[in-house]
Nucleic acid binder design. Structure first.
Lengths: 184, 184
DNA sequence: CCAGAATAGCTAACATTGTTAGCCTGTCAA
DNA sequence: TTGACAGGCTAACAATGTTAGCTATTCTGG
């Protein structure tokens, strides 16, 4: 069951969708089994007929998140003159448009066995391509983007900080690096 | 040296120290008011005689964390030929040496009114200096370092990823950028 | 030197959380 | 027709942070 599940039943997908709505509307505090059940017109224990526990529910939400992120990335790359800039803008916008979802997707260690297979890779692929297939550079760039994003969401920068400028400086730095092809 | 919180009573600082030990030993799940009390030889409600709630307790732990981080940074810069490299290595080592503390320090929005005054700035100062006083560049660099660190701690990179190489590429990118003096 | 306040512990209890056990009802295949 | 099972339900449990209210010790002012 735990090995290659992630094949959610239609009802489980429905529940995950409602959970995502609830998360976005009320934040992580609001995402309780009882509140979710109420939104579905059922009682909390009934959720367990469709999903083993809250971790699996969150994994289902995260899978939905990766799907949407991948779609957003794909849309950003269509006819973009500079892929890296386009990707960065969409990355940032996605996180600001869905802050609770973004936090849930990134804040913890990820139990990948609970995820829809391949969905994480699909979201990561455009970043690799945007830096010319250099895996190390892609990881560094992703780390920068995530760092900027999460620190911004968590208001870790000073209130008067010019974050557009910080993004720009970082992207310039990574753009100035020549890609090296490495194993893939 | 480690300037301790003037707002905290000695007993509260003692409790925060025990809480930090508990956190590092057992992780965030283990940091409950009852377990902390047990470690102190008292009962949970007694903690509230010294700290208003768990948020304040965590803020006290975070303040301790910033102090230690600042000390580590200061140590790293003594007689370092390349400040940025030295700082990055110590940043990474601090997080790996105290993963639960690092997560607690960075994972949430920060209620700065609960923090020991000035301690956050003291930890951030060396980074600003290492990039030549360019605030935007310092923020971008910090974002990169935090991104790499937290993604590494949370095992978000593929297991076979060469993270030393990713760090190197990122640091090279930032090193190649010329600092611009801006307002400070 | 004593009275009262402050300090710092205690027990009992509460609401909320995720979760389990066990029951019931409708649907549908054998 | 019957029996499995899908999917709901109620009741309950343990753990969590937290509050109320009691008590014992210590400090302090007159």
């Amino acid at each position: 069951m735990t090995t290659t599940d992630a094949a959610l039943t239609p009802r489980a997908r429905e529940i995950a969708g409602a959970a995502l709505e609830l998360l976005e509307a009320e934040g992580p505090e609001g995402l309780t089994m009882r509140r979710l059940a109420a939104r579905l017109g059922i009682r909390a224990p009934s959720i367990y007929k469709h999903l083993p526990d809250k971790e699996a529910l969150e994994a289902a939400i995260i899978s939905l998140g990766f799907e949407r992120q991948a779609d957003a990335f794909a849309g950003a790359l269509e006819g973009a003159d500079d892929p890296l800039t386009a990707l960065a803008r969409v990355y940032r916008e996605f996180a600001h448009g869905h802050p609770h979802l973004y936090r849930l997707m990134t804040e913890r260690e990820l139990n990948r066995t609970l995820l829809t297979p391949g969905v994480e890779q699909r979201a990561a692929l455009p970043v690799h391509e945007a830096v010319g297939g250099d895996a190390d550079l892609a990881r560094a760039t992703w780390a920068f983007a995530h760092g900027m994003t999460i620190l911004e969401l968590d208001r870790r920068f000073p209130p008067d900080a010019d974050l557009d400028a910080a993004w720009q400086r970082g992207l310039d730095a990574f753009r100035s690096v020549k890609p090296r092809r490495n194993r893939d």
